[in-house]
Nucleic acid binder design. Sequence first.
DNA 1: GTCTATATCGGGATAGAC
DNA 2: GTCTATCCCGATATAGAC
Lengths: 217, 217
Amino acid sequence: MVNFIGFNQILIIICMTEKEQNTEERILIAAKQVFLRKGMAGARMQEIANEAGINKSLLHYYYRSKDKLFLAVFRLAIQNFLPEIKSILLSDVLVTEKIDRFVEGYMNVLLNNPFVPLFILQEIQRDPDRLLNIFLEEGIQPQLILEQFERAVQKGEIKAVDPKHLLINILSLCIFPIVARPMMQRMLYDNDSDAYNEFLRERKKVVSEFVKNAIKK
Amino acid sequence: MVNFIGFNQILIIICMTEKEQNTEERILIAAKQVFLRKGMAGARMQEIANEAGINKSLLHYYYRSKDKLFLAVFRLAIQNFLPEIKSILLSDVLVTEKIDRFVEGYMNVLLNNPFVPLFILQEIQRDPDRLLNIFLEEGIQPQLILEQFERAVQKGEIKAVDPKHLLINILSLCIFPIVARPMMQRMLYDNDSDAYNEFLRERKKVVSEFVKNAIKK
DNA sequence: GTCTATATCGGGATAGAC
DNA sequence: GTCTATCCCGATATAGAC
């Protein structure tokens, strides 16, 4: 008897594969939403299942546990960040120009993924080494930008500042207004969402100017 | 029969009162620790009871529910912040001098309560209006400092900057290095805690200078 | 006020039918 | 692969003895 796979068997296989990918992906997207909103501890498997439009058990079928699902989601989340940021950091331009580009690009990323930073801050406190390892595996390298700042100081392009402080200053100015949004929007803008969006948009330029003023000789 | 309270009855009452206060207070302190570390969702009543060295049921005896306990703790936490900060904001000095004092005072408070900011950021996202109401009840008023910045701009003491951006810039530079500590300490200082403490101490001056440079004419 | 015991509930995880 | 039903544990909360 010849090995033979009938036409509709192939169809079934294709269908199952497509379904699998769809479901798996839908789970990931749903889980991302919920994890980002609630954090690991606050997220409920039921809520994720609802958001994905499937049964709770299916979550365990695809990702054996809540913990595994969480890890998958986290990798996905930071991979949205990386390519854009990396390309900016690797670009070969003057330090002041690079600061402009970085602030612009980084704040755009944050505006598109507003829940990611707080999520990272939460989980990094819950279990610091786990997430740090993932960061390292994904090739996050602060050394690169620190050296650039260092060289810019030596060449006299900017004031003599500690590169680590400068890096944290820039990150602070970009990230904090996003993670503190629920509070700041209420306290400064009467909870007017549009006004705060406008504030964040104009903030790209404001931060760039602020930093460049602070470090120019 | 005359109304009469015997001597040992008085002793008992005093004892009970003292014990009550002690226990109540011990619970508050323990709960503060746990809530700050784990957030509302991650905190466990058992863990709080252990930390206070008492039985789980006693938590419910003094504070009817986890939620009520949480609110009590939160009020306590922000009341540690307020007096110091308020007095700085109300002091009558030049804007640059006030920025120095604020950064110094605020970062000291943060160094003594390093878990508070992330805790606030977490809970403010979980239930924004609840915490905001507490802030308002406690008399937190950004308007005050905004007006001072405004006047300083008009008087020509500092560059023409948007007061709201300036306020958020200062807050960012102070708060972010504390909430992101677990990550930054590992990425920038090989997880050397002493080195990061030193970094934060010198940061008070660094931030002051950074901000003043950025806004001087 | 403080403890032990227990009720009650919700969530993660598994078994098994289809 | 997907569903229903169920297990099991842990956590909040209550009852009641002392």
